[in-house]
Design a protein around this nucleic acid. Structure first.
Length: 867
RNA sequence: GCCGUCGUGGCGGAAUUGGUAGACGCACGGGACUCAAAAUCCCGCGAUCGCAAGGUCAUGAGAGUUCGAUUCUCUCCGACGGCACCA
């Protein structure tokens, strides 16, 4: 792109006092005026459309993206832009390195917080959102980002959510969206159902209320169908932080094991007769090798078998009472009460252990979860801590079938006493849940745990008692919200046809504009009150029908937004045209680690689905992921209105300038680590920029008498300059901004020490600094006489031959301690260096006449002498 | 409880991945300039002994490998983050 600046608008005034020979105490020109420079260039960049992005065939593309913000009512604090600054630095450097860069921005504006804010302040969410976006946009504008605002997106724009709805429809058509009536997490304060991912310690992630379990009609997305791929493909993401991948692995929670069927019989205690029942209990276990140690079976309170066995159960009243109690516990209570396990025996029925035919008692207990596995377990108290606790409390038998390794015995001929000893040891405190070898296990006895598992699975499969099975902790995604401010779900309920999709041509299905949108709390969406919207015709048969009244959750819009930036006109049906994707996948994605198991899982899920239907051409959306470390307040706490410690970026920009603030946020520490704000730190950056500004006085003019000095300056500075080009380039690529800046400071310090400075070196400094401090560098660049923007210039390259000085200093160690420093010519060979080191007088002193045993030379570093 | 990350001056943090620990910045101390202050510039700045040259001790604690460890191994202590009755 060949853009030219109109320099009529830019006065290149050199300070009157500019003199190449700045004397020792020459009066300094005052600091640079950041107000003037920053607003001037922000305006010019915009006017000249420096950031206008186009698909170009002749340049490699680079797509760098921030997790787009939620435009809250509170505005930005200094922590928000940290990630945006980083992507901006990378974007600017990539631009200068010849890449065609896309660095867009948009708004994730649907969802609970926006709606709650609107309710509280008695404004319509649409109005509040619009206003908040304006504030955010203005604040971001002050920081001089490279956004192409022509590509701005907003998830609440019907033109946008048309495609959110479209994707939902595709999922529905392929059976990935289903209706369910299972109990779900219900927030009594937000008055809506929530997904597992929306909870924090059993509380609502948003408002902190205790979550209840409530059966409710809801739409659920079958993310579990993708569990295996979501897990496996993590291995492909070699540019993701390992901790984030680990968090996703844990969240998906894959475990291998077996499902085992226990036959249920009816046995009355008085009559001791055994009647068959046509029921079985299926359990999931990761330890099929311990099947011989099972001493009872437990059903979750939600287990359907209980109702089915009703007439056979002798103490049904008692059982029912327990189930009711369990139901009334909130998720929080259920986990908080884990110290004390409770349960009730279901009398009149027994389960048959398929391995040995033993009759086992059946319990109902809420330490078994209804939502995981089959909602039933075989209890092996000797080898599971929870079963152990429960068995102790209810005096149930504990049978040891696995022995820990070690001891003098070999598998197969275990001495009875040793076994008994181990048993006593184990039974005194804990279950033994580790691996070992089997005992008292019939055909498994003597086998090591891994082999025993395999053998048992084989046996179960042969006999038809069970099979190999994989389980995930990941649950399907509860996708409907009983709230107003979200995308309407494009489904219609017809009395005859059942659920029918809204035809694609009728999308977007717009959210009706209403006055009252308070949540009803009944489990129905507030949209229910809008009768003329709710009642509609069936698109299939034309009969009476009603719309789905729930809306989509906050995360829906952010699942695919990165694709929307591809399309500046917001018109094309780009979600279904894989081949037209120019920018995807994202080369660098930056955002907070708190999204590890929410947005980043949901988005990967949707992306894989879009891949399956041919809408995108790669299986992972985010090639490289980088986490931003939180900025804490000066007092070390989180920035919050509550603590009154929030720092507003507008104030910082006003006082010290956007460049100083950008520089400081990149310098404060390793990018991904949390760090406390320091206003003094910003002052330091301001001083640094001031130094850079004042350096221009030393840039030699064309006066002849400076020629010698320039030569001197060039040779003196060029090693540092080349080192700096190398380091800054590599550091920005690796997102190690703090060390890049410190290297720039080293260069500037050196330049300040020199009396004159050649314009070329100065220009290179400006180019290297420009991604961090774009305004001041652009200004100084233009003052050097450049007509084109510094960001259209080519990124400097370093000269490999000029990375080292002519001589190098080496440390000499004697027995591991540094005793001397020698200076040698760079090209000198190893043997010569060693002999130079050995004749050094300090080295001789420490050798004390002894002969060195060994002399080690580490290239360019040191010589180590061992005596 | 399980998984992960991390412990370096008064503070934020560097350290080429096993090679002179403390780069760079902040704070602090001294000096120059000034009537004075601010700003700016110069010098100093881990602890300790010494007038000095220089020595000794120092990267959470303890051990180990090595000529040499902030870096690798083991044990322990502490902080932060995630998950949590997931069978």
């Amino acid at each position: 792109m060949q853009k030219k600046y109109n320099h009529k608008q830019v006065e290149n005034k050199w300070p009157a006092s500019t003199k190449a020979s700045a004397g020792k105490h020459a009066v300094k020109v005052r600091q640079y005026n950041h107000h003037e420079i920053e607003s001037k260039w922000q305006k010019l960049w915009l006017e000249k459309k420096l950031y206008k992005t186009k698909e170009l065939a002749d340049k490699p593309k680079y797509y760098v993206l921030d997790m787009f913000p939620y435009p809250s009512g509170a505005g930005l604090h200094v922590g928000h832009p940290k990630g945006y600054i980083a992507t901006d630095v990378v974007a600017r450097m990539k631009m200068m390195r010849g890449f065609n860069v896309l660095h867009p921005m948009g708004w994730d504006a649907f969802g609970l917080p926006a709606e709650n804010y609107a309710l509280k302040n008695k404004v319509h969410p649409a109005v509040a959102t619009k206003k908040n976006i304006q504030v955010f946009k203005k604040q971001l504008g002050l920081l001089g980002f490279t956004y192409d605002w022509d590509r701005e997106i907003n998830t609440t724009d019907p033109n946008y959510y048309k495609w959110t709805q479209w994707i939902f429809l595709q999922m529905f058509k392929r059976g990935l969206a289903y209706e369910s009536n299972e109990p779900i997490n219900w927030c009594p304060s937000c008055k809506t159902g929530l997904a597992n991912e929306d909870l924090e310690d059993g509380k609502c992630e948003r408002c902190g209320s205790a979550i209840e379990q409530k059966p409710m009609r809801q739409w659920v997305l079958k993310i579990t169908d993708y569990a295996e791929r979501l897990l496996k493909d993590l291995d492909l993401l070699d540019k993701w932080p390992e901790p984030i991948k680990e968090m996703q692995r844990n969240w998906i929670g894959r475990s291998e094991g077996a499902s085992v069927r226990f036959t249920v019989i009816a046995r009355s205690e008085e009559r001791a007769t055994r009647q068959s029942s046509d029921s079985t209990i299926e359990v999931f276990t990761t330890r099929p090798d311990t099947l011989f140690g099972a001493t009872y079976v437990v059903l979750a309170p939600e287990h359907k078998l209980i109702e089915k066995l009703k007439i056979k159960i002798e103490n049904f009243g008692e059982v029912k009472k327990y189930i009711e109690q369990a139901k009334n516990k909130t998720a929080l209570e259920r986990t908080e009460l884990q110290k004390e396990k409770t349960g009730v025996e279901i009398k009149g029925v027994k389960a048959i252990n398929p391995a040995n035919g033993e009759e086992l008692p059946i319990f109902v207990a809420d330490y078994v979860l209804g939502g995981y596995g089959t909602g039933a377990i075989m209890a092996v108290p000797a080898h599971d801590e929870r079963d152990f606790e429960f068995a102790k409390k209810y005096n149930l038998p504990i049978k040891i079938v696995v022995m820990p390794d070690g001891g003098s015995t070999t598998a197969g001929n275990t001495a009875e006493q040793i076994v008994q000893e181990e048993i006593n040891k184990i039974l005194s405190e804990h279950a033994f849940s580790g691996n070992g070898y089997n005992v008292k296990s019939d055909f498994l006895s003597g086998l090591r745990t891994l082999k025993a598992k395999e053998k048992m699975i084989q046996w179960l499969e042969e006999k038809g008692f069970g099979k190999r099975q994989v389980q995930y902790k990941l649950r399907d995604w509860v996708f409907s919200r009983q709230r107003y401010w979200g995308e309407p779900i494009p489904l219609v309920r017809c009395e005859k046809c059942g659920w029918v999709t809204v035809p694609e041509k009728d999308l977007p299905l717009e959210l009706p504009k209403v006055k009252h949108y308070e949540p009803s709390g009944t489990g129905e969406s507030p949209l229910t009150n809008i009768k003329n919207w709710m009642n509609t015709k069936c698109p299939q048969c034309g009969g009476q029908a009603k719309r789905e009244m729930n809306t989509m959750p906050q995360w829906a819009g952010s699942c695919w937004y990165y694709l929307r930036y591809e399309d500046p006109d917001n018109k094309k049906a780009l979600v279904d045209k894989a081949k037209e994707k120019y920018w995807s996948p994202i080369d660098l994605y930056v955002g907070g680690a708190e999204h590890a198991t929410r947005h980043l899982i949901y988005a990967r899920f949707w992306h894989k689905f879009l891949y399956d239907i041919g809408a995108v051409n790669n299986i992972e959306p985010f090639t490289r992921l980088q986490n931003v470390g939180l900025i804490l307040a000066e007092d070390g706490r989180k920035m919050s209105k509550r603590w009154n410690n929030v720092i507003n970026p507008d104030d910082v920009v006003k006082q010290y300038g956007a460049d100083a603030m950008r520089l400081y946020e990149m310098f404060m520490g390793p990018f991904d680590q949390p760090c406390a704000w320091s206003t003094q730190g910003v002052v330091g950056m301001y001083r640094f920029l001031d130094k850079v500004w004042n350096l221009k006085e030393r840039v030699a003019s064309n006066k002849k008498q400076d020629t010698n000095n320039i030569q001197y300056s060039i040779s003196n500075i060029q090693v540092t300059l080349n080192q700096t080009i190398k380091k800054v380039t590599e550091d920005i690529e690796n997102l190690r901004f703090n060390t890049a800046i410190s290297q720039l400071m080293i260069l500037v310090n050196e330049m300040s020490r020199s009396k004159v400075l050649d314009p070329k070196s100065y220009a290179i400094l400006l180019q290297l600094l420009a991604p961090f401090a774009p305004h001041i560098c652009e200004e100084l660049w233009s003052q050097l006489g450049n007509k084109k923007s510094i960001f259209l210039s080519d990124w400097p390259k370093y000269d490999v031959d000029k990375l080292q000085f002519d001589t190098m200093k080496l440390a000499v160690q004697v027995n591991g301690r540094v005793r001397a420093t020698i200076e040698v010519q760079t090209g000198v060979g190893e043997e010569e260096i060693k002999s130079v080191a050995l004749v050094d007088k300090n080295v001789k002193k420490w050798l004390d006449g002894k002969e060195p045993k060994k002399v080690i030379y580490v290239k360019g570093r040191l010589v180590s002498v061992v005596v």
